[in-house]
Design a binder for these strands. Structure first.
Length: 238
DNA sequence: TCATTAAATTGTT
DNA sequence: AACAATTTAATGA
């Protein structure tokens, strides 16, 4: 069972985020008073599809995989969430229910903003509203890119793209060049088998886009990764 | 600090 | 999916 901890660090994390810095002192004070922190052990759930959304959530530390499970038990990864990412605005605004399952791929710390506080900020702060709109737009672009790659491109291209998306400055402000992800974890995030991830990383390394390390990948060229293509994408076969 | 062993991760089939 | 090779982490003298 995840435990709720003292809020100080979570409040500091929230208030130093891109949206937190835009708040008025009064708005910041309410956030400071109401933000909570939760620690999630590797392998445990952050949210369950169908459960009520109580909080808008920010990743302070760690890594999350968002996925959906079909009635038959097949599951598909939608995206990863790295440190600095805020998520849940979709279900908070739309259905009040989580639409996906979230699992921590490693020990993770989450900042929790109560739903009511989130909605209050949306009403009170135009800057906050702009942040949320900007984030929704980025996510839409991300999902469009993923669907396109899923249908038209090779597994190697999908791996490159999911790495590149981790460097989107709007969705993941705090990611640095040394990505501490194992090839297995990259596989979970991109929905590609580990063997194929291994092959993909070597191809990217040949082009100096990344440097493969033990348990990590050093990213040299984000734009190059976003544009990375192989000749054997599904589009090339038809 | 070094050597040994176990565990995790990578690379290949 | 299975297996071997490599790297790191843990242990104990």
């Amino acid at each position: 069972m995840p435990r709720v901890h003292a809020p100080q660090e979570a409040a500091a994390f929230a208030l130093s985020s891109p949206w937190g810095r835009t708040l008025t002192p009064a708005q910041a004070e309410r956030v400071r008073a109401e933000v909570r922190e939760r620690r999630i052990a590797k392998g445990s759930a952050i949210c369950h599809a169908g459960a009520e959304v109580e909080f808008w959530k920010g990743v302070m530390e760690g890594l999350i995989k968002m996925s959906v499970v079909s009635a038959q038990g097949r599951h598909a990864t939608l995206t990863g969430l790295a440190a600095g990412a805020w998520f849940g605005e979709g279900p908070v605004l739309r259905s009040r229910l989580w639409e996906f399952d979230g699992v921590a791929l490693r020990d993770t710390r989450i900042a929790l903003v109560p739903r009511a506080t989130f909605l209050w900020l949306l009403d009170e702060s135009p800057a906050f509203a702009r942040f949320v709109i900007g984030q929704l737009s980025e996510r839409l672009a991300q999902f469009a890119s993923i669907i396109e790659a899923e249908r038209l491109e090779s597994a190697e291209t999908r791996v490159a793209r999911s790495l590149a998306w981790l460097y989107n400055p709007v969705l993941y402000p705090g990611v640095n060049q040394e990505l501490e992800l194992t090839q297995q974890e990259i596989g979970y995030l991109s929905g590609v088998p580990r063997q194929r991830v291994n092959r993909a990383l070597k191809l990217m390394q040949e082009q100096d886009l990344v440097r493969v390390r033990y348990g990590a990948v050093h990213i040299n060229n984000v734009a190059g990764l976003m544009g990375f293509r192989t000749e054997d994408g599904a589009g090339a076969l038809r």
